[in-house]
Lab assay of single mutants.
Amino acid sequence: MASQGTKRSYEQMETDGERQNATEIRASVGKMIDGIGRFYIQMCTELKLSDYEGRLIQNSLTIERMVLSAFDERRNKYLEEHPSAGKDPKKTGGPIYKRVDRKWMRELVLYDKEEIRRIWRQANNGDDATAGLTHMMIWHSNLNDTTYQRTRALVRTGMDPRMCSLMQGSTLPRRSGAAGAAVKGVGTMVMELIRMIKRGINDRNFWRGENGRKTRSAYERMCNILKGKFQTAAQRAMMDQVRESRNPGNAEIEDLIFLARSALILRGSVAHKSCLPACVYGPAVASGYDFEKEGYSLVGIDPFKLLQNSQVYSLIRPNENPAHKSQLVWMACNSAAFEDLRVLSFIRGTKVSPRGKLSTRGVQIASNENMDAMESSTLELRSRYWAIRTRSGGNTNQQRASAGQISVQPAFSVQRNLPFDKPTIMAAFTGNTEGRTSDMRAEIIRMMEGAKPEEMSFQGRGVFELSDERAANPIVPSFDMSNEGSYFFGDNAEEYDN
């Protein structure tokens, strides 16, 4: 993207840094990872977990959730003011799984939030270390993106479920800051804005008074975040219109849905970061690795190297396929839920299948599930090659597409044709070009129609051997075009429920 120079890199967003050079960025990201790792080690000690239990991804998720809940100030305040039966607002906890007599047992633990905050700050040299908290939120978000298709949420806001490739980060909490905003897809931002506008339509006082002023500035800020994701002048001009509207209503909703559809071809720039579970960072720190000293990046080879040398386990339900569970977590670790499966298959070195073909449910185990038949197995999170994460949407291309997802959002900077089903997408653009945004709409449609099938995206960008740390010898991959490109292809993934 041309304006790259004016933006802070995501590592800076990730670490609240002012302008830093590459070495400083690597050190501050490393410091953040160190903090998460030290916190995780301490929690495993508190909970008396064995090494194996500490490497269980379900335990990692519970521990991450506990610290996120302990620092969720708004919710904590709300819980104190609106006490609900049987919930102690000062405590947080969740299921911890232990191996007892050759069987997995679930144990519900409860801790004072104050105590968890103390352990977290102690692991982070006394700081609140917001960057580390956001990092864990993005890992949870990436896992949700890989596990669930947001059909219901899309339909509720009037969008087409086939636009799911635009929904990265749709389950990120509001408090995820600049680093969170960077990884949100165009569809996620559109959905947040539509929800806001709908509230304004239904509630006369939404934009009024002292609160209304705050609401208005939040609305304009979200519009600017979305505008910054678009790469064409016409899309940005249309966002200006939406932002400046005196009284946002149905016309703005129409414009936003139009823009979301246009992003299936004229893709937005959305950041991709490899955020790993805390149970990967903990053992690495415990083994003596100093992330701050060595430096770390979320968008280069580092996460690949770390996963190459990590042992992570997962509980497996009786009829689940461990290899499929591994694929789910591998995609989440690489922030690749909406990437082209052919690119992923090449990088991973084994075939990556669409969601609907995987015999696996989510990673988390519900409290009512029976533990008797639970097994555990090693997650295979290694890769054959590594590639640089991208934040450009890439230019655009036609490809055989599917009944489910009709476009992709690249996660890796790797040369390819970008699949999208042009006739299906263009069919949504018939007729409606009147109104105050008509010239911009016409211009956007013209650009979409001009998108050429034979153009290559990320020209000359390749993948790298894991021994090639400096990215000196790019390998331009070859793809098996007979395979499906979309992950949520004609899909039956479970729906995400809060």
Results as ranks from 00 to 15, higher is better:
residue 455 E to S: 13
residue 268 G to K: 12
residue 498 N to H: 00
residue 293 K to W: 10
residue 395 N to S: 14
residue 309 N to P: 12
residue 229 K to C: 11
residue 10 Y to I: 02
residue 152 R to N: 08
residue 297 S to H: 10
residue 335 S to Q: 12
residue 454 E to W: 01
residue 479 F to D: 13
residue 15 T to W: 10
residue 372 D to P: 14
residue 73 E to M: 12
residue 284 A to W: 09
residue 371 M to I: 12
residue 42 Q to A: 00
residue 97 Y to L: 07
residue 269 S to D: 10
residue 441 R to C: 09
residue 484 E to K: 03
residue 27 A to I: 01
residue 142 N to L: 02
residue 52 Y to T: 12
residue 382 R to G: 14
residue 392 S to K: 07
residue 473 N to C: 04
residue 469 E to A: 00
residue 107 E to H: 03
residue 428 A to W: 08
residue 146 T to L: 13
residue 300 G to D: 06
residue 5 G to K: 09
residue 67 V to T: 02
residue 335 S to I: 03
residue 318 P to H: 03
residue 232 T to R: 01
residue 132 G to N: 15
residue 478 S to N: 11
residue 148 Y to P: 11
residue 492 N to A: 03
residue 433 T to P: 01
residue 406 I to E: 06
residue 400 R to I: 02
residue 233 A to N: 13
residue 390 T to H: 10
residue 65 R to K: 08
residue 97 Y to Q: 08
residue 320 E to Y: 10
residue 218 A to D: 02
residue 48 K to G: 00
residue 175 R to E: 10
residue 237 A to C: 12
residue 73 E to I: 15
residue 435 G to P: 05
residue 110 L to T: 15
residue 383 S to F: 06
residue 68 L to F: 12
residue 243 R to N: 15
residue 334 N to D: 12
residue 178 A to Y: 06
residue 5 G to P: 03
residue 165 S to T: 12
residue 63 I to C: 06
residue 36 I to A: 04
residue 454 E to S: 14
residue 137 M to N: 12
residue 342 R to N: 07
residue 222 M to K: 14
residue 286 A to N: 06
residue 35 G to Q: 07
residue 35 G to V: 06
residue 354 P to E: 03
residue 239 M to T: 02
residue 294 E to V: 02
residue 224 N to H: 00
residue 482 S to F: 10
residue 256 L to V: 01
residue 140 H to K: 11
residue 370 N to R: 01
residue 295 G to K: 13
residue 41 I to M: 00
residue 393 G to C: 10
residue 99 R to E: 10
residue 195 R to A: 06
residue 56 L to H: 00
residue 429 F to D: 07
residue 258 F to W: 10
residue 125 N to T: 06
residue 261 R to L: 08
residue 270 V to I: 05
residue 481 M to W: 02
residue 64 E to A: 01
residue 435 G to D: 11
residue 350 T to Q: 04
residue 201 I to D: 07
residue 139 W to C: 03
residue 8 R to D: 11
residue 81 E to M: 13
residue 263 A to R: 13
residue 460 G to W: 05
residue 382 R to A: 09
residue 376 S to Y: 15
residue 191 M to L: 05
residue 12 Q to G: 01
residue 423 P to W: 05
residue 66 M to A: 07
residue 351 K to S: 09
residue 224 N to T: 00
residue 210 E to Q: 04
residue 132 G to R: 04
residue 207 W to I: 10
residue 408 V to M: 00
residue 330 W to L: 07
residue 388 I to F: 06
residue 476 V to P: 04
residue 352 V to W: 10
residue 2 A to C: 10
residue 177 G to W: 10
residue 296 Y to I: 13
residue 370 N to D: 09
residue 351 K to H: 04
residue 125 N to C: 14
residue 204 R to I: 14
residue 96 I to E: 03
residue 489 F to G: 10
residue 267 R to S: 14
residue 388 I to Q: 07
residue 5 G to T: 02
residue 429 F to Y: 15
residue 90 K to L: 15
residue 58 Q to V: 09
residue 295 G to S: 10
residue 190 V to M: 05
residue 404 G to C: 12
residue 216 R to E: 10
residue 279 C to A: 08
residue 489 F to C: 05
residue 232 T to M: 10
residue 488 F to M: 11
residue 24 E to R: 02
residue 295 G to D: 10
residue 183 V to Q: 06
residue 279 C to M: 12
residue 409 Q to S: 01
residue 448 M to Q: 12
residue 204 R to V: 12
residue 229 K to M: 11
residue 415 Q to R: 15
residue 188 T to Q: 07
residue 353 S to C: 02
residue 74 R to Q: 08
residue 491 D to E: 02
residue 101 D to Q: 00
residue 339 E to D: 15
residue 412 F to N: 12
residue 479 F to H: 04
residue 62 T to P: 02
residue 367 S to H: 01
residue 427 A to F: 01
residue 337 A to R: 08
residue 440 M to H: 04
residue 287 S to K: 10
residue 395 N to D: 06
residue 408 V to D: 09
residue 254 E to R: 13
residue 290 D to Y: 14
residue 295 G to F: 10
residue 498 N to A: 15
residue 79 L to S: 01
residue 440 M to F: 00
residue 39 F to L: 09
residue 156 R to S: 13
residue 475 I to G: 06
residue 128 D to R: 12
residue 452 K to V: 01
residue 324 H to C: 13
residue 103 K to Y: 12
residue 443 E to L: 10
residue 129 A to C: 03
residue 219 Y to G: 08
residue 362 G to N: 11
residue 29 V to A: 03
residue 441 R to S: 12
residue 133 L to D: 12
residue 412 F to Y: 00
residue 185 G to E: 12
residue 402 S to Y: 04
residue 427 A to L: 15
residue 150 R to P: 07
residue 478 S to R: 00
residue 478 S to D: 11
residue 196 M to K: 06
residue 140 H to W: 11
residue 430 T to W: 04
residue 489 F to S: 13
residue 490 G to F: 11
residue 23 T to G: 01
residue 192 E to V: 15
residue 203 D to K: 06
residue 485 G to T: 07
residue 171 T to I: 05
residue 325 K to L: 08
residue 264 L to I: 03
residue 214 K to Q: 14
residue 170 S to M: 14
residue 60 S to M: 02
residue 274 S to Q: 10
residue 370 N to I: 14
residue 45 T to F: 09
residue 83 P to Q: 00
residue 305 K to R: 02
residue 20 Q to W: 07
residue 237 A to K: 08
residue 484 E to S: 03
residue 82 H to V: 00
residue 107 E to F: 07
residue 103 K to H: 09
residue 273 K to Q: 09
residue 47 L to R: 05
residue 482 S to L: 07
residue 11 E to A: 13
residue 103 K to F: 13
residue 389 R to K: 14
residue 75 R to H: 13
residue 442 A to F: 07
residue 143 L to D: 14
residue 373 A to E: 01
residue 307 L to S: 11
residue 3 S to N: 01
residue 333 C to Q: 05
residue 408 V to S: 01
residue 434 E to H: 08
residue 27 A to T: 02
residue 192 E to Y: 04
residue 194 I to C: 01
residue 181 A to V: 04
residue 98 K to N: 06
residue 118 R to T: 12
residue 477 P to Y: 11
residue 174 R to K: 13
